[in-house]
């Protein structure tokens, strides 16, 4: 089977810093893939490379059998890659429903959709994440957890095939963490999205992910089933340091 996302030998430098070093990975359709690694391992940079915010210095990124290396972000979005941000970045002066309506209006299948229809469609996604009762509240007045849900709704509203999730758990309490995992699982079932998930909370990613990829200093050091990866010597060394491994 052909992988949905295929990253081949991608390298990205920022001046002298090698942020992503010759990383190759592939994500199959319908999977939840966890991308973990210590701070500064290059996880978010890899996500930005996939989204087209940065261009890779070398290497190739294929999505759905198509070369997307160096395409502008809005075209990559229309091909079917949605993402959420580590620090939520809503449109602060808009209400929640309009935040979602923006992404509904930019889908390829909504070329002639009116604003009213887009709002109707957006309310469906808001209901999915459980924010429908907050639809008329400005995004700048929402709490962190609501913003995370809003970001997810906004990403799902672009009707992505691949959803890139960047640390949804950061700053959430245990109850919210649980419902976030459920929400992402439910999104995967209902919208048939493939998920590439960056996470720091190990417990969560070990339960949720089908496969885990570990980055360290921009290099891929391990890949495999969650329970295999945690036993990997190099992973333990990367997280705890050589002394304790």
């Amino acid at each position: 089977m052909m992988p949905l996302l295929n990253i081949i030998n991608v390298t990205k430098r920022f001046g002298g810093i090698l942020a992503v070093d010759n990383v190759s990975l592939s994500v199959n359709e319908g999977e939840i893939v966890g991308l973990i690694g210590p701070n500064g391992a290059g996880k978010t940079t890899l996500l930005n490379l996939i989204c087209g915010i940065y261009k890779p210095d070398s290497g190739k990124i294929e999505f759905n059998g198509k070369d997307i290396t160096g395409l502008p972000p809005h075209k990559i979005c229309k091909l079917g890659i949605g993402r959420t941000y580590q620090i939520p970045q809503p449109f602060p002066d808009m209400t929640a429903i309009l935040n979602v309506a923006v992404s509904v209006l930019n889908r390829t299948d909504s070329a002639n959709m009116s604003l009213g229809d887009a709002l109707l469609e957006a309310s469906y996604y808001l209901e999915f994440v459980g924010l429908l009762n907050k639809r008329d509240i400005l995004a700048r007045d929402l709490t962190l957890w609501e913003l995370r849900k809003l970001e997810l709704a906004r990403a799902l509203a672009t009707s992505p095939k691949l959803l890139l999730i960047d640390e949804v758990m950061a700053g959430l309490n245990p109850a919210e963490t649980l419902s976030a995992v459920r929400l992402i699982k439910r999104a995967q079932e209902e919208f048939h999205v493939t998920v590439l998930w960056i996470e720091h909370v190990m417990k969560v990613i070990m339960e949720a992910a089908d496969r885990v990829i570990v980055l360290h200093y921009g290099k891929k050091i391990a890949e495999g089933k969650p329970d295999e990866v945690v036993k990997n010597e190099r992973v333990v060394e990367a997280y705890l340091g050589g002394k304790y491994a």
Binding site: C51, I53, P72, P73, H74, C77, K78, R83, Y85, Q89, P90, F91, P92, D93, M94, L98, A101, V102, S103, L105, N106, R107, M113, S114, L115, A118, R154, T158
Partner: peptide, 26 residues
Amino acid sequence: FRSRWGLKMAAINDNEDVARMLGVDV
């Protein structure tokens, strides 16, 4: 301003990079 183009322009006004990520041809 009251049409869908207005909403996209408002998105550009609010946050250009995010608008680009959501598929607006900024």
